[in-house]
């Protein structure tokens, strides 16, 4: 198992910033300082994405109740996607999958969402670079440059991504979504950046099942790292060597 050994790509944020500075300087000398983020002082408990972290989830399949879908409803409510009315075309950021062992008949149930791979195939195939991995391991779609080609959906081994087939209105302010682009679980990045846990994790805890642990895989003291170190766990499609940030126990 090679979880915390992560090498993160450099992303060209610095380049954007510099380009912007140039453009701004040329445009107007009246400016104080374009690009200066005036609101970057103070504020509440929150931090920028940091490469010293890698966010992950651990699902204990034994604790996941078969007919419970609290995580799914919570995600849907949090991120503003409707629970499937038209399951073929509606987006599903997270879904409950029911399993029956073909040989033994053992049944299990678990949530599947974006697995936040260390080597995400969706990021490799995306022609514009809209699919990307944040330095803290969260895999996102930059919907501002997504052209809706859906190659990432072809390449994802978990079917974690959805395409928005229709016009949407009244989206959640923190989860913009719109027709013609691809989307998936963001690990509730807006909450994580604010120092909170993803909605599914909170909802699962609230049911008393407590089947999902969220935490920093690089921090050996975190609950998730300890659980991973002490008990066996698996990655879905481990054969592909993608080293996902979402792991399952007792599968």
């Amino acid at each position: 198992m090679k979880l915390p050994a992560v090498k993160f790509d450099e992303r060209p944020a610095e380049m954007h910033r510099r380009d912007f500075m140039k453009a701004g300087a040329a445009l107007a000398t009246v400016t104080l300082a374009p690009g200066v983020t005036l609101m970057a002082f103070g504020g509440d408990a929150s931090a920028e994405a940091s490469a010293s972290k890698r966010w992950g989830l651990l699902v204990d399949v034994n604790k996941c109740a078969k007919d419970c879908d609290a995580c799914v409803t919570a995600c849907s409510k949090e991120n503003g996607w409707r629970l499937p009315e038209n399951p073929e075309t509606d987006a599903q950021w997270i879904r409950k999958v029911n399993l029956t062992d073909k040989d033994t008949g053992r049944e299990a149930s678990l949530p599947v969402m974006c697995q936040h791979c260390e080597e995400p195939p969706c990021v490799d195939v995306c022609p514009t670079g809209a699919s990307f991995k944040r330095v803290d391991g969260i895999v996102l779609v930059d919907k501002h440059i997504c052209i809706g080609c859906r190659y990432c959906m072809m390449a994802c081994p978990y079917k974690a991504r959805s395409f928005v087939h229709e016009d949407l209105t009244d989206q959640k302010p923190w989860a913009p979504r719109g027709k013609g682009t691809v989307e998936s679980c963001t690990m509730c990045v807006h909450r994580v950046d604010a120092g909170q846990k993803p909605a599914c994790v909170e909802a699962c805890a609230a049911t008393g099942n407590g089947a999902i642990i969220f935490g920093d895989l690089r921090d050996p003291e975190s609950e998730i790292s300890k659980a991973l170190a002490n008990y066996p766990s698996t990655a879905l499609r481990a054969d592909m060597g993608l080293n996902p940030g979402v792991r399952y126990q007792n599968l």
Partner: peptide, 21 residues
Amino acid sequence: NHMRLLQHDRDLTMHNGDRHI
């Protein structure tokens, strides 16, 4: 400049998780 500021800062949020933009 609002369009440039918006575009610049959206990248900060989107890619760096900087939400104090």
